[in-house]
Every structure is written in C-alpha cells, then in structure tokens.
Design a binder for these strands. Sequence first.
DNA 1: GCCGTTTTCGGCCCGACTGTTTTCAGTCG
Length: 574
Amino acid sequence: MEKKFSNKDVAQLLRNVSAAYQVKGASSFQIRAYDLAADAVEHASSDVRALWETGDLDKIPGVGSHIANYLDEYFTSGEVRHFKTVFKDIPDSMFELLRVPGIGPKTAYKLAKTGVANTQDLEKQIKSRTLLDKGFGQKVLDNILRGVEEFKRRSDRILLPVAWGVASQVIEYLKKNKNVTNADPLGSLRRKVATVGDIDISVASDDPKSVVEHFLKFPGKERVVEAGERTATISVDGGIRIDLMIQPPERYGSLLQHFTGSKHHNIHIRRIAREKGLSLSEYGIKLVEEKGAQFSQDTFFKCETEQEFYRKLGMGYIEPELREDQGEIEAAMAGKLPDLIRLEDIRGDLHTHSSWSDGQDSIADMTKAASSFEREYIALTDHSYPSLNYEKRLKEIEQYNYSQDNIRVISGLEVNINADYNLQITDDILAKHDIIFVSIHTSFRQSKDEMTQRIVRAMENPHVDALAHPTGRLLLEREGIEADWEKIFKRIGQLGKFLEIDGYPNRLDLPDNLVKEAKRFGVKFTVDTDSHRTEHLKLMEYGVSVARRGWLQKEDVINTLPYPKLKDILGIRD
DNA sequence: GCCGTTTTCGGCCCGACTGTTTTCAGTCG
C-alpha cells in the first residue's frame, strides 16, 4: 500500500495525466506543466508524502495550487476525481504501451483502442499482421516491433560506471576517425547521475557525414535506430541506446551545453536568456529581439567552449555535476559557485575490506594496491564478525605498518547497528581500533522513527566515527531505508562526526541530494570506495562525483587531509 | 497548469529525424 505513494508512483500518475491530456488535445502548456511537475516530484529530495503531511507540497517547483490540491485528494482518499474524468474513455493498456521506446501517447492510444492489451499482445499482433489494415503502415509497425524487442531486453537504467565504460569505448572508437577533433559524453552521464538511461556522445567535427558513417560501423552495434546529417542513434548489447550529436568545433561549446542538460537547468537558463532577448540552441546564442544596446542586430555567438557560453549569459562556468536547477544558476550569476572537490584532492581511503572478513584480498595486497594509486593512507574496516580474531588482525596491521613506510594503514571496523539499537560488538573491542564505521545491514524496513533512533544512538557511542552507506540503498535493486535525515544530520553535525559517501557502484550512498542537505547542517564527509578487492580501489572517482553533485568542496571531506591532520581529527593515538 | 527583479495576466525552450496524410504529426532529447 505504501508503495503507491512513493515519489516515483506519484510522478507516474502525473505523467499518465500528461499522456491522457495529449491524447485529448489539451493545451501544450498544460501538458508540459504536468510533465514538469512529474519530474520535480520524482527528483524531489524529500518524500512527497511527507511534504504533503506538513503542507509543503507547493514548495516543489512546478507543483502549483491546482496539482497540489489534486495530490491532497490523492493522499487523502487514494484517488482524484478530476483525474478519473481525464482517464475516462482511455484504456489502461495505453499506459503500459507507452513504456515502449518509440511509442508516444498518440500511438499508444491508437493501439489500445484497436484492442492491443499489452506489450506481449502488441508483439503477437504485429507478427500476425493483424494491425496492418488498421491504420498502421508496415514501416511504422517494423519500428514499433524493434522498440518492443528493445523494451523486453533492457533494464530501465544502467549504473554510472557501466555506462561510463561503454561510453569510453565508443569515444575511443570515434577518435580513430581523423575528422573527429573532440568527443565527450553528454547528458546524465556527463552530469554523473548515479544511474543513466542511455548514452549520449558529442563530437566536434567539420565532416559530420563521415563521422556518422564511422559511428554506424561501431563494432558493438546491434542496430541503427536512426541516422541523419549530424545526429545518429544506434543500440548496442543489452538494448543500450547510444545517441551521437555532431557540430563543427566552433560550435562545440554550444553543443556540449545544450545536451548536457539537465532539462530543468536548460529551461531555467533559457528563460533568463529570453529576458535578455536571446535564444539558445545547440548552434549557439542568437539575438531574437533588441533589448538594451549590448548586441547588434545580426549577432550570433557560436561558442566554441561552454565557458564562453555561460560568460555570454553573465554567469560563471557551471560544472556539469551542478546543472540540476538546484540553485546553481543563481549562484553562477552571483559569482558564488562552489570550488568543487576533485579526485586529486583525495589522499586516502577510509572504508575497505580484506580477506579478514568478506574481502577477497589480504591486507598487504589491498595496501600495496592503494599505494599504487598514490594514497597516503588506507583504513581496513572489515566487518565486525563476532568470530573474528581481533587481536591477531590488529597485530598484522601493526606489523605491516612497521614493515614499510609507503602508506599508513589505519585499523578500523565496519560495525552493524542491530535492530535493537545495539552495536554488533562490545565497546572494549571498538576502543582498540582507530576508526569505527557503523552501518545498517539488517531490518531495513523498520519504521521511520525507530530507524532514526537506531542510527542516532549508534552515532552517539563515543567510539563511533562515521555512518557508512547511510541509506543502505542498492541501485536498481533495493530502496534505501526511511529515516528522519534532518534529525540525523543535525545530530551528527553536533557530535562533529562524519557521514560517508560510499563510492561502490551500486551504492553511491549517501545520495547526492542528501549530501547537499547534510552539508547545510555543517556535517563533514568521508568519500570511500568500500572496496572488497584491489580492483575496486580505483572506483574512488564515482564517490567523488557524488560529492561534487552534492556541492562539496575539498574542506568538506576529511580524507583530503594529510595523515597528521586526519589523525588529529579522528583522535588516533600514536 | 505554472509563475513573477519591469508582470496576478500572458507568456511559456528549441530542434532533429521518421514516415507519409507532400506541409505536417509524432516522438525524442
């Protein structure tokens, strides 16, 4: 029951209203209003139902008085009378068919009306040619069928590092064409969102035709979805779509800016541009009407770089990770953008596992590998299994520190917070280690109040330093826990303790929006890999990308400190 | 339906590709 009211469910409801409006030919602005509200709800940093409870629904940008009233009715009674009339005469199957790529509201409606029950039925009916004489041409049906096949195969989203890997291969391949002067990822991938839907790539070239031809021959290609003059789309293994966009080098900045998004960021800056009489596109900045005397009538700025693009709009350069319309535009205009943390700022990794618990490699191997990444220190934080021989493990770490001076090894543990609020092991064992992470690994579905208490009590234990992967989410697998984050952040801030940003690919936890929130409470962070084998140690960049999306600077993150300072802050004795 | 540093009314981002109803609609990003 509770699931029906998640942000994702509410967003889906609003998208369905938008689709129904499109079928019924409502005003395009009304349609867009529902789409924007749906996006805003889906990406809101708070639970939409919690906002409703406190009467703060209209604080979500894009949700105004009308939609707020409808949602009030929805949360109160489970349905909305107005929406029911909107959905009248529209078969339910339309909304399922909409999930197939290439099928929009109009087509979905038409299919549903001809009696297509769902995607399986759609596939069957296309193959048995029953739809041919019902207003669909062969080419359209072929295209839909390919969409259905793709839909069946693909999972909704891809983990950031997986997408990054595919994109890197494509970019490397593209650069083999001598007409390609530059190539970069675009979209949510470039903004380093935790999961991405498809892969967009930009290319700077004066010979787009040859680049498109080259792209269509990419070795991993499954099929060509479309191919034009300066854009093309292919799909690769697993139904992942790769979009290519090409502009000449002198417009490359405009292209990057346009397709990096986010949609909301671009809508906002275009609104600001319009107020200045400017129109923005992937071709550049164009003067549409004279307002003030800054520009002559025929001015057109192509923008070779994004820096130039933002400068022309009177803003500082906005890093891609910030482009979510979460205050970065205002900050850019006021010259108050943060100086974001970089991968090079990281000096050590504070959350890793060895073969003492569930890791694959020995402490010596983990440490050598960390040293090869030029880390100054590494904390081994094995799980606090009750059966572990803690004394022997501590001895091994101590001896290892004596045996070399390339890297400092810090003795640590990752300790479960039990459902009864107690920690997995006793304080006397905790006291013998230099860093203690606590984390939730059981009873994920406790009530919000219990969960909040559980975490706060654990953090109040004087031996505890940091909360590891705070929400416990597993991307594409499991939702995070429900807790009163504001309360938790406030308490951790008071205690002067730390929140972890876990960079493990399917965690990326604390999530970026909560990172930004926690920073407001003065909380400091540690960005770690949670490595379980030596190869994982290189995944630090993904943790850093979460930190950047959360507006963190170097000084917000304790493992940017040199060891002597880190030692002080963690209270490590010699 | 949303929204406000000239506005509570009158605007609302911009363009590519495909198929086909050859002047445009549908879909996508």
